[in-house]
Design a protein around this nucleic acid. Sequence first.
DNA 1: AGCCTTTGACCAGCG
DNA 2: TCGCTGGTCAAAGGC
Length: 362
Amino acid sequence: MSEREQSSSKPPTSIRPMITLPPRSSMENYFIGESGASPGPITLVSSFFTENEPETDFRSFSQLLAGAMASPTAVPNVRRDFPPSHDAAAHMNSGGDVFQLNRPAGLVASEQLGVLTIPPGLTPAGLLDSTGIFPPAQGPNGISHQKMLAQVSTQARARQQMPPPKASHKMKESSDISHSDQTYQPSNLTVDKPAEDGYNWRKYGQKQVKSSEYPRSYYRCTNSNCPVKKKVERSLEGQITEIIYKGQHNHQPPNKRGASNAQGSSESSQVTPERVSGSSDSDEVGNAETRVNEWDDDEPQSKRRNIEVQTSEQATNHRTVTEPRIIVQTLSEVDLLDDGYRWRKYGQKVVKGNPFPRSGLD
DNA sequence: AGCCTTTGACCAGCG
DNA sequence: TCGCTGGTCAAAGGC
């Protein structure tokens, strides 16, 4: 069953915040840090729920994205003391790998509206870079071959108006991010170049895939050593239906607007020696996947760790078009072997500016 | 000149 | 073994 097909089987109006997390063996690493400060999905998720910027209440995710571009301070707001043992732990079970995150205080008002508000500063890149919160280094207890597997999925869905059809389908995905803003701020329509996720991308392919009714475009980060790729699905109107990030940037964003949050800015420093020297294949330096999807849920619960975040528009506007959904997945190189999933190497190539062959793993 | 997008071909995995 | 599918390659052309 394709993801899209799976999505159709889910209630489109699900608003309950939810995260699904990796198999327990990996999960435990999140909650067991040497310093106890090693954040995990819960921490990341909890960052979504902070009320550090109450004035930013009821932003759409796209607005948050846009806001993130200009707000380098969001990440420090990450709550590190969010108790994983709360309902979250209570919902964990060995069978399902799914637990629901109990909402923190401050989320009440929003959730009464059936929404969760996400603090600004979380861009796709930021989310991706937030894997820095989940250092790719080996887990605690010196488990050399059991590295952290962190997959955090964030879903933001809301109903809003369809944006006017795009004049050009060549809009870059970075502007895709801002594209959803168009539904709120048409005057902000950005069609061209801007890499608003902070990174520069080069399209290397496009294909109509069965699992999607829309063409899927393939991009890779233009940075010489950066293994990050992303897939973008776009509707006929030019509206992004889904973005999937894979990999982890090993550099700072050329456009610091996009990844100026703490995770992003610190990311390069988080390229640990292990990642540098321990991986013969640069693409195995962590793997992160971030998905933005304006449509319905489509992730198999068995494979995705989801945080469903319904933005406020859904409750306040009752519009007719979904808000982008974001799913972040991160996992480290060893988990490529140990995470229980199957990985397929899909290519290797010497890229310009990179003396080492680049490989990709799916 | 360099970078980017486009697009058909090619490849590998899977059933 | 074969067809399907998703992902990547790479030539060509545009900016």
